[in-house]
């Protein structure tokens, strides 16, 4: 758990972060979003003390981070940045092994962990283990960057616009993989972005920042349906609002559980905008739904998608 209590950071006369308080729960995927200069990256970099806080307290699992050695604190967290920052003179394996190496893991364990991580991030260990960063594409480099951050099984993963420099297809696949990794490992993630679609897609909760202040911290659904200020509304955007609204809920949230129908079923965790797309493509108003084990889980009707009260605060 990460707690910020009235944390302030000034650079000269400019207040980058202004008395910000928030809590990130264990295992939560928290997105920080805001325009450039809003203080979101500063907040992230204060969590691992790359930037020291001027005022207020930052606690991790109840422990004030000011009382810890910065290096020890950082080795307990993963850190991924937009420009990746792989060590160009080290192989992929050695890059990934950075933190385990600093922690003094035995060689065999490091080697196994590198293999495991390369596989987790869909990089063939035989092919990439001994490659150098310049031999990889941008997407592959960031995969290695994520693997390096996860290497020592950190409880907290800090990510500063990690996918912003990637092409849309690579970005989408890395987002999907990151979601899966988050679900699988239960790591607490703090993720900075300026892309609202990315925030809505990844976050359990979204904290919107502007001029160093926290404007709103809420679930994706609440950010969409109850924006706390015009800025939040602008960040979400008017365009395709309805589809974004659908995208933050899943088929399982709205299916009528008692009913059944025929046809190719949708998985319960499919986002609703995909279900709509599927209905349009198939020319039907009803789709059967199955749960994670493939058992029937009801029927989704077209009218369920526009039910005004549906879902409530998910």
């Amino acid at each position: 758990m990460i707690e910020f209590e009235r944390v302030t950071k000034r650079f000269g006369s400019w207040t980058a972060v202004d008395a910000v308080s928030f809590t990130v729960a264990e295992g939560e995927f928290r997105v920080l979003i805001g325009p450039s200069g809003s203080g979101k990256s500063t907040v992230l970099r204060m969590i691992n003390r790359l930037i020291p806080a001027d005022e207020g307290a930052i606690r991790i699992d109840g422990e004030d981070i000011a009382s810890l050695k910065p290096e020890e604190l950082r080795r307990r967290m993963g850190y991924v940045i937009q420009s990746v920052g792989l060590f160009p003179h080290w192989t992929v394996e050695r890059n990934i092994a950075t933190v385990p190496g600093l922690l003094g893991w035995p060689r065999a364990r490091i080697r196994d962990r590198v293999t495991e991580l390369l596989e987790l991030l869909n990089l063939d260990p035989r092919r990439y283990r001994s490659a150098y960063p310049h031999q990889l594409s941008g997407g592959q480099q960031q995969r290695v960057g994520v693997a390096r951050a996860l290497a020592a099984e950190p409880r907290i993963l800090l990510m500063d616009e990690p996918f912003s420099a990637l092409d849309p297809i690579t970005r989408a696949s890395l987002q999907t993989e990151l979601s899966a990794i988050h679900r699988r490992t239960g790591t607490t993630v703090v993720f900075v972005t300026h892309d609202m679609d990315e925030a809505l897609r990844l976050g359990d909760s979204i904290a919107v920042m502007d001029h160093g202040r926290l404007i709103q911290c809420a679930s994706p659904l609440d950010i969409l349906t109850r924006p706390a200020s015009p800025l939040v509304r602008d960040l979400v955007g008017r365009e395709e609002w309805g589809l974004k609204r659908l995208a933050v809920e899943t088929v399982g949230d709205r299916a009528r559980r008692q009913e059944s129908t025929t046809g190719e079923p949708l998985a319960a965790e499919t986002p609703l905008h995909r279900a709509l797309s599927e209905m349009v493509a198939r020319g039907t108003e009803r789709l059967p739904v199955v749960d994670g084990d493939g058992r029937p889980a009801g029927v989704l009707h077209l009218s369920d998608l526009v039910r005004p009260d549906a879902g409530g605060t998910a």
């Binding site: 691992n48 790359l50 950082r74 390096r148």
Partner: peptide, 10 residues
């Protein structure tokens, strides 16, 4: 960025 990640990794 290389220095940033070196420090950030501990």
């Amino acid at each position: 960025p290389v220095l940033d990640s070196a420090r950030g990794l501990g």
